[in-house]
Design a protein around this nucleic acid. Structure first.
Length: 469
RNA sequence: GGCGCAGUAGCCAAGUGGUAAGGCAUGGGUCUGCAACACCCUGAUUCACCGGUUCAAAUCCGGUCUGCGCCUCCA
């Protein structure tokens, strides 16, 4: 399995620190509002990475934090006249609902920054002791960027470029910094802000230290994978590396994975442009599984454009796969013969090629676009090779393959066993009787009646099928 | 200014040296009482442009144009 490592700028063979196990940290959202579809991309793609790893037999320890102390949370709390924790708890709850609908598995641990303050203070103390950090007059603690030789290795920047190129870095008004590139580890409280006691002042942690501490606590000093959006490469992840490696004295994460941005009409999503969508917005029109499928249709490192048309296309494509599975289930019930014929055995060997293609695509830096295309090819194969007289074993084998590949992607291809109301069932029967008697007016009337209730009927050679709209 | 990414059919999107996957949409067909649904078939002599390397390039090198991101605790 190869993964693209931002650190080296190359695809590398994935070799976990401990055989058979994967430790993975994914930077989570700041919980000040409903998550937007951009937040959903890393959740979906790295959940898919996790699922694939698990499919390969790895035991994955997956940690993703909630940043629950932040200016925006405090601002919102002040606006509502409530405590910041009320805001963060509310949106953690909402975020978890969205994740569930997106089929993002809960992390092994979802740490919250506010519960890890002691660990942060401890790491900051270590950094000061080792000469990598210093406290200013007002109690602000800064990381001394120049003290860490590897600074810039992730984002491939060098300090001198940053100095000469940086715009506001030099005029940030933070003249108490020894160097403009130094960043905050601990900052003093302002009036009305939540705060914690510390050796330097009453205050709260900087953003970057949170992840270094939570990652170490739940996964250890050295981890396999650290992931997040590409915008986090600098400064967030660069700073995490500096903090963790300076404090622990050993390499931090072996592989750094970053997803590309989600754009709207090739523009960055922003509230000011009015092209801002929350996951909840999308859920009003689509099963969120469609959003997941849409995101998996491109490679995770590419920028991905979002639009209503593309969601429609994704919906139709996903529907094709789901329909195939439901057709197979339908045929399964009707299947006469149970055992595979020789021809069917050969066909199943052929079908394995698509499964192999799927695995090869995923092994190549999680190329979900290619993996999904393998599923489509398998669907086509099933559609063309399952005819009348196909054996139950054959149909089931193909169906199981499709369902399993979809499951690795976090997609549910098999509709649950939905029970028909006795009323609906009898209406369908009545319509069948009417059709037999060529009373098509009555038949159409019943069809319309059911349609109003969201039941779509399909008359096929094998009988009447129905589905919910 | 510094660093980086991208430009493949109407749209989306794989492919990174060996002669263009897959999906959506369109068109044709099958099925059907009709319809809807579904299914099958259908598409780039060509990969932004110009040069170069090579037996061979969408893929490598140089240049040009275009779009985008990061350098502001925005995933």
């Amino acid at each position: 399995m190869k993964v693209y490592n931002t650190l080296s700028g190359k695809k590398e063979e994935f070799v976990p620190i401990e055989e058979g196990k994967v430790s993975m940290y994914v930077c989570g959202p700041t919980v000040y509002n409903l998550i937007h579809i951009g937040n959903a991309r890393p959740m979906i793609v790295f959940d898919t990475v996790r699922r694939y790893m698990e499919h390969k037999g790895y035991e994955v320890n997956y940690v993703s934090n909630f940043t629950d102390v932040d200016d925006k949370i405090i601002k919102k709390a002040n606006e509502e006249g409530t405590d910041p924790s009320v805001i963060s708890e509310r949106y953690i709850g909402e975020c978890k609902k969205d994740m569930e609908a997106l089929h993002v598995k809960p992390a092994t641990t979802h740490p919250k920054a506010t519960c890890e303050i002691d660990g942060m203070i401890e790491m900051i103390e270590t950094l000061i002791e080792k000469g990598h950090a210093y406290a200013a007059q007002d109690g602000t603690v800064y990381f001394k960027t120049r003290s860490f030789p590897g600074y810039g290795k992730l984002s491939h920047k060098n300090l001198d470029d940053l100095r000469s190129g940086g715009r506001s870095l030099l005029v940030s008004g933070e003249e108490q910094k020894q160097d403009p590139l130094d960043f905050v580890l601990w900052k003093p409280k302002k009036e009305g802000e939540p705060f914690w006691e510390s050796p330097w002042c009453e205050g709260r942690p900087g953003w970057h230290i949170e992840c270094s501490v939570m990652s170490r606590k739940y996964l250890g000093e050295e981890i396999d994978i650290h992931a997040g959006g590409e915008d986090l490469i600098f400064p967030h992840h660069e700073n995490e590396i500096a903090q963790s490696e300076a404090a622990n004295g050993k390499p931090f994460a072996k592989y750094w994975l970053h997803n590309g941005f989600l754009n709207i009409d090739n523009k960055k999503m922003s509230k000011s442009l009015g092209n801002f969508f929350t996951v909840r917005d999308i859920s009003e029109k689509y099963d969120l599984q469609v959003l997941r499928f849409f995101m998996l249709s491109a490679h995770y490192r590419s920028p991905l454009n979002f639009s209503a048309e593309l969601m429609e296309a994704a919906k139709n494509g996903l529907e094709r796969i789901i329909t195939c599975v439901s057709n197979l289930n339908f045929l399964l019930e009707k299947a006469g013969a149970q055992d595979l014929t020789d021809g069917e055995e050969k066909a199943l060997v052929q079908a394995k090629d698509f499964v192999r293609k799927f695995d090869e695509a995923m092994d190549d830096d999680f190329n979900t676009a290619d993996a999904v295309s393998a599923i489509f090819e398998l669907v086509k194969f099933a559609n063309t090779s399952v005819g009348e007289g196909a054996s139950a074993a054959f149909i089931r084998a193909l169906k199981d393959e499709i369902v399993e590949l979809m499951d690795i992607c976090g997609l549910t291809a098999e509709r649950g066993q939905e029970m028909l109301d006795g009323e609906i069932e009898s209406l369908i029967q009545e319509r069948q009787d009417a059709r037999k008697a060529k009373n098509f007016a009555r038949a159409d009337e019943i069809r319309d009646q059911l349609l109003e209730k969201g039941i779509i009927l399909e008359d096929t050679r094998e009988g009447v099928k129905w589905k919910r709209a």
